[in-house]
Design a binder for these strands. Sequence first.
DNA 1: CATGAATGAGGATTCATTCAT
DNA 2: TATGAATGAATCCTCATTCAT
Lengths: 208, 208, 208, 208
Amino acid sequence: MSKTSNDLIQEQLIAARRNQILDAATTIFAEKGFHRATIRDVAKAAGIADGTIYIYFENKTALLMGILNRLNESDEREASFEEAADTDINTFFRKYVRQRLEVFDQMGMNAVKIVLSEVLTNTDLRDMYYQHVVEPTFELALTYFQKWMDSGLIRRFDVQMTMRMITSMVLGLLVLRLMGDRTIEEQWQKLPDVITDMVLYGIQGEQP
Amino acid sequence: MSKTSNDLIQEQLIAARRNQILDAATTIFAEKGFHRATIRDVAKAAGIADGTIYIYFENKTALLMGILNRLNESDEREASFEEAADTDINTFFRKYVRQRLEVFDQMGMNAVKIVLSEVLTNTDLRDMYYQHVVEPTFELALTYFQKWMDSGLIRRFDVQMTMRMITSMVLGLLVLRLMGDRTIEEQWQKLPDVITDMVLYGIQGEQP
Amino acid sequence: MSKTSNDLIQEQLIAARRNQILDAATTIFAEKGFHRATIRDVAKAAGIADGTIYIYFENKTALLMGILNRLNESDEREASFEEAADTDINTFFRKYVRQRLEVFDQMGMNAVKIVLSEVLTNTDLRDMYYQHVVEPTFELALTYFQKWMDSGLIRRFDVQMTMRMITSMVLGLLVLRLMGDRTIEEQWQKLPDVITDMVLYGIQGEQP
Amino acid sequence: MSKTSNDLIQEQLIAARRNQILDAATTIFAEKGFHRATIRDVAKAAGIADGTIYIYFENKTALLMGILNRLNESDEREASFEEAADTDINTFFRKYVRQRLEVFDQMGMNAVKIVLSEVLTNTDLRDMYYQHVVEPTFELALTYFQKWMDSGLIRRFDVQMTMRMITSMVLGLLVLRLMGDRTIEEQWQKLPDVITDMVLYGIQGEQP
DNA sequence: CATGAATGAGGATTCATTCAT
DNA sequence: TATGAATGAATCCTCATTCAT
């Protein structure tokens, strides 16, 4: 067997083990909170020994970062609006919101819950998250909004704030769901529609 | 001095001391996060001894609950929309958002940050918060929306979800600001206007 | 009112307050054990404030000593065998045991329980107790035994050990009762008789 | 190496470590008393870290229970009177007392001191001790006494109380020794003889 | 690599004691 | 004297991290 092949297998094994640990950590952290959860809890959930975790992660915080990174990756993997951009705004929004929600659903709300909770009190994580996740999103969105506004498809307004309001709506709904709101959980599938409707026409505007 | 008078002074002293401690706790918890902050940190910030805290609060968690309760109280104090209800929707929204944001400003974002962060991972706190803060808000709002819809001032839609979307927008903007978004912080004063605009007409609708 | 009279009243007030506190301490210490009981527990039981205790006793240990001293005093008050010495041995023993048990009954088993428990692990208290209570008892008893042995009323044996065995029997029965032995508690009144019987004739000897 | 063999070694290691800790605890608790002794004291005496104790014992109280249990075990190991029962009463008593004292000697008076002291103020421990140690002893003794009484070897009396008096004598001598009585300590070896003598014939009866 | 026993720093909490009122 | 709020040293216990096997 060639060295390269061996290395590849090694890498895959390591990646697999890392994922196994992160899966366990995600479950446990979401359940008990990052601080209340112990390494032993995570190890037990992963079916390995305490010490083994430290072979794959430098320390407890590195687990958190690992969870955040996986979140970023799946985020990026989905964030391809290129094809959608050509269609009409209505379709675009529906698609955008659906994609965004799917990321959450896939990763499980759990990862989001953990990161969100820590992001609020951990300065390092906050900056990292904001720069890697929030800002890129805004930058991407900015180009679309500008184009639509220039071509008169939407009326003129403060783009920066509008973008943030729309993002916030999705984010807020997520938080509300994580806080245990049953209604939102049950209507989760309808969000792309109702959000698009709201964003495009408001509560007074006419429905086409 | 009468017993009653003595008791009153006593009560005020106790309340003052409790507030002094909660102020310190709010600052420290917001800075370091609830779990990373120590009782000693809080005591030092309050300028008292560690043990003194335990005269006024049963344990560290009780400090958290104390912060949450003060948030509730100031929330309730402001939550009088009665006068506003008679005016037009546009004015109502502007007023509603302004009041809601003022609460946050007064209490300091700090209290919100702490509670929000813990609410996501602490089941007890979550239930308490949802029942005491979120649900009452929705119930109140429900009556207004129903009235407006019935009188044709706004178009027909899923009230429960719409309410949640609007609340979520405010909540999400708050989270985004707590995550360090400079734009939102700078435009904070304009929120009542831009939110109202968005909620009423959407991004496509006509501005009156 | 004369100074002397005033002083006397003062003294009595102080003594009364000290006793009030010692009564409470005895109850509480017996209930929870010296170490598990807090000064606050004692103060509450005495119906006074924490700080007041420190006006009458230097510290928590002084309460223990106070209890021990009251035990000694009531012990000494009762320890007058003079009249009994002239009667026959049988009557003497019955009387001796009865007196000894009465002390315990009056003081309440509680004081004994507390002192005994602490005496086993507190060196200072141990020495104090042994010198003030145990040794004097043995010295007194020694004279009687010697007299009886010389006059042939009892057979010759190791006086020191015999005295200790008899004392130990009473002490042991007390401990067993404090440990919750129901039989001993119920038969407590009969102890003077059965002990005397046992000590004089053993289990094989003839009863007169 | 087979699993079974591994497990066995593991068990022995754990048992050894537990004993090491209990030995240290016994020494320290006897010296300072259970409450005055700190976990750090015990750890230092055992030559291990504080935290290690908590791997083998749930908490400080569990150490106490561990000491009590070892006492019970060595008690049970010695408590085989079967062979002795066939011989004459005189021999039986000598043997019985000797065995009982040997247990104390082996375990070290220390364990007894600790347990006795706590037994007086700790309700849980008291009940546990009484049921596991005291009652079984009485029940066993009861059968012998009944047999002897029925066969006329000893005179008739209240068996329950007599048993308790004899037990109490041993217990009391133990307490007296723990309280620092030099005489009893020096004559400890003679106890089987003098106690038997006393129990069988009393102080007036004839010696055979 | 995997393990899990051992470590010991760190932190919440208690409570004897003091002292201003 | 009496009070009880305030103090802060003391202590139990937890748990992230290390390392010998």
